[in-house]
Write a protein that binds this DNA or RNA. Structure first.
Lengths: 190, 190
DNA sequence: CATTTTAACTAATGATGTTAGTTAAAGCAA
DNA sequence: TTGCTTTAACTAACATCATTAGTTAAAATG
């Protein structure tokens, strides 16, 4: 492939390829060398599309956060109350299950303070706030509850992914029971 | 330093040095090059003490899990019931706060299925089981509750470390409220 | 049609992990 | 003490990686 080929790669194709490598082999295999090989170009050519490995990780993180948000938002359609929280929670852990590498990328943003990364993440926080509004928590309690739900979802997904749950006990059942317990508890606390 | 110096390094010194690098600069800076520099030796010499970067990560993971376990076990002395769970939880998140790199290492074991890594982690699970026994959960409910508590602790610590909690709201207060809600909920569910 | 832009390329550099083989001091046994 | 073995350092070399600089030719633009 000589300079300026007929069909230049676009950034979406590249990020999707990176996501496939991540899901199949893990984020540690998302290298410029591997990505270039998969795309049939040479590593330095990638610098025309993003700013090095750091830039790639940032783009992949945002791509993943957006994708996760869409799954959660979809799951929230047409449900409310406890059902909504459970549906969104299941969407979250399923995303982490079926896209382990992309989920990993989500947490590996080079700079979590980056504006674009923040904005992507804020949508998920907002969604969580909204589905917890049904519980009519007062003041700070709503914010504490959001932190709790996010902790459960991330912790559960992360531990499941890292093989942290060894017992022969249904994982989906665990999740529902955990969420129900938490929701019952934050209701009581009022 | 020529071959066979008077005072050879021992593995504990080496792992502690690696832990310091991790806590100060993050796990991505725990390289054989950086570790050798800190110890005043050349990178290949490290192969006399562990099996390459993979071996170092495994040893550091076990070192971290043991250290975390001791903090949790200490916190569990002389307390029971909800107080015990809260004390242990605070010990957990404080460990992650003051040893962010070592906590990170804890999750970066090259092979989570490794026997030694499993055994180290099992002690934490056992401790969690024991402090939840006060709640007299029946059968599988106890196991689901353990998964829930671990998810909260890991998720909370991980999100806090990655700057996931942006709101100006006291973190320690959040943790206590979250734990109390969860405990109240698993009691109800019986 | 001439110019500019673009997205690929080659070549080279520095950092890393790793292996192989070497060496000299410590440890130990006769 | 003497002599052998073990050990923990070393140098040298290599492969892989990210990255930079400079080049090129085709597409895009006027």
């Amino acid at each position: 492939m000589s300079p300026r080929p007929k069909f230049a790669l676009d950034i979406t194709t590249i990020i999707e390829a990176a996501g496939e490598i991540a899901d199949q082999y893990g984020m540690q295999e998302v290298t410029l060398a591997n990505l270039a090989k998969k795309l049939g170009i040479r590593p330095p050519s990638l610098y025309n599309h993003f700013d090095g490995l750091t830039g790639l990780r940032k783009k992949l993180a945002i791509y993943g956060i957006d994708k996760l948000y869409r799954r959660m938002a979809d799951a929230a359609i047409g449900v409310s109350g406890t059902n909504a929280v459970i549906a969104v929670s299941q969407a979250y852990v399923n995303f982490a299950r079926f896209h382990p590498g992309i989920y990993e990328a989500t947490l590996l943003a080079p700079d979590p303070e980056d504006v674009e990364v923040q904005e992507a993440g804020a949508k998920i926080v907002d969604l969580t706030v909204r589905i917890l509004q049904a519980y009519q928590l007062e003041g700070d309690h709503a914010l504490h509850a959001v932190r709790g739900l996010r902790s459960i979802l991330h912790g559960f997904s992360s531990l499941e992914q890292k093989g942290g749950f060894k017992m022969a006990l249904d994982l989906d059942e665990s999740l529902v029971i955990i969420i129900q317990a938490f929701l019952a508890g934050i209701g009581d606390g009022q």
